[in-house]
Design a protein around this nucleic acid. Structure first.
Lengths: 230, 230
DNA sequence: CCTCGCTCGATTGCATGCAACGTAGGGGTG
DNA sequence: CACCCCTACGTTGCATGCAATCGAGCGAGG
């Protein structure tokens, strides 16, 4: 979207990417000076970024005790997907009347790209899926033209970090997920809100099953969320 | 809840109250030095507060051009109530199994107080309704035990500013609204999630009608959102 | 040996100073 | 007369310094 011009915004997006990308594990300490050095700015923009990330729910800040990457329980994760299961299908249905042919083409291109880099084989690149998936869903959010719903979704989704999604998908679930994207495009193209809603419902349910299973495994595997920074 | 201890938090809540209370009209300019003087702190905590309020959607910040109180259109306001109509009934139903007798008593007390200060007559004090109403709904949110839903709701509700709610209620709608609170308590006490959900749905629909009408009148009355600060 | 209190180091919170950007007004030119 | 540029002011963005707070480690007392 808009290129970050201020240092604070760069720090914000950089930190967000670092967290969403897994370089900063949940529970990891976020020292201001360390981050400032790492990002090549002073503490002020770092503080601002941390503040805003705290508002988004990605980090937890305790006064005089610093910031840590937010953690979440399996129950919270399930709650997030419950919510997505309510909001995203609605949003998708809302998008239908606003979709123009150019939008269909764009979404179709994204879906095809995801199919390309996501399909098993030599060209598989799961890391490339993350931005594509995000672009796809963001596009849908924009097409829905419903700022309040967008804000609610953003607030709900951020915490759980969607990143490990594609790294934890088993082959069958991933294939389903990729197929859903294409089917959503088809429903939009056909102008059928109920179809679109139904596919998105399936899409979220599928993702929910994968994520919850992965979270269960993770929490049982790593007893204590240690101070991993790298 | 937790008393704000840092200057930034005080500035945050002070600014939020100023905006929600109507002292800072939508579109009003928010100069850092002016606010700093007004709140008796330096610009740094003010900047932090503005940043977080921007993340909440209460103010809009444009780099190098300062912050203004966020404005919203009637369509956005309607969107917010659409969303509340989906989320709050669910939330209320979720709260039902978690409600303990003490909670019922507490909510009942709030509902009765609101009835007291809200009923027409010599003791009517509409300004007192705002914190009571907020306490009531916050209590419900807490009882639902669904952090993601709470976050989504908070993100969605903040922008439209609930304040003028009670100042714009006509007598009949206000009576209905106050009655709803009591009925919600009854539904919770009876342990009937469907009842609770239904009442909350009505509650939001009623509020929606009032707010949208008020917003229509307001926007047609004030052509341009002038630089009102007081 | 365990517990409590204290001091020191490290980190955060805030204020202030300086540089950069944006805006408004006036003068000059086409 | 209209338009453009250019200068000056006000404001924001960021860096840095200093005071306050927190936590760890150590020593004394029970």
């Amino acid at each position: 979207m808009t290129r970050p011009v201020t240092s604070a915004e760069r720090a914000l997006t950089a930190l967000r990417d670092l967290i969403m990308g897994g370089q900063l594990a949940p529970g990891a300490r976020l020292g201001e000076v360390e981050l400032a050095d790492r990002l090549g700015v002073s503490r002020t923009p770092v503080r601002e970024a941390l503040s805003r990330l705290a508002a988004e729910g990605l980090v937890q800040v305790v006064p005089n005790r610093g910031a840590r990457v937010a953690t979440w329980t399996v129950a919270e994760l399930e709650g997030v997907f419950d919510l997505r299961a309510v909001l995203e299908p609605r949003l998708t249905a809302l998008a239908v009347p606003n979709v123009r042919p150019a939008d269909v083409d764009e979404l179709d291109a994204l879906a095809r790209q995801m199919l390309e880099v996501g399909s098993p084989g030599p060209g598989q690149d799961l890391d490339a899926l993350v931005p594509l998936n995000r672009a796809f869903h963001d596009r849908l959010v924009a097409l829905a033209g419903h700022p309040a719903l967008a804000a609610a979704l953003a607030a709900a989704i951020h915490p759980p970090i969607v990143r490990r999604n594609f790294l934890t998908y088993d082959e069958e679930s991933l294939r389903r997920s990729l197929a859903h994207h294409g089917e959503i495009v088809a429903a939009l193209s056909a102008g059928d809100p109920e179809w679109a809603r139904a596919v998105m419902t399936s899409h979220i349910a599928n993702a929910r099953a994968v994520m919850v299973r992965a979270a269960r495994l993770q929490t049982t595997a790593t007893a204590t969320p240690e101070e991993e920074t790298a």
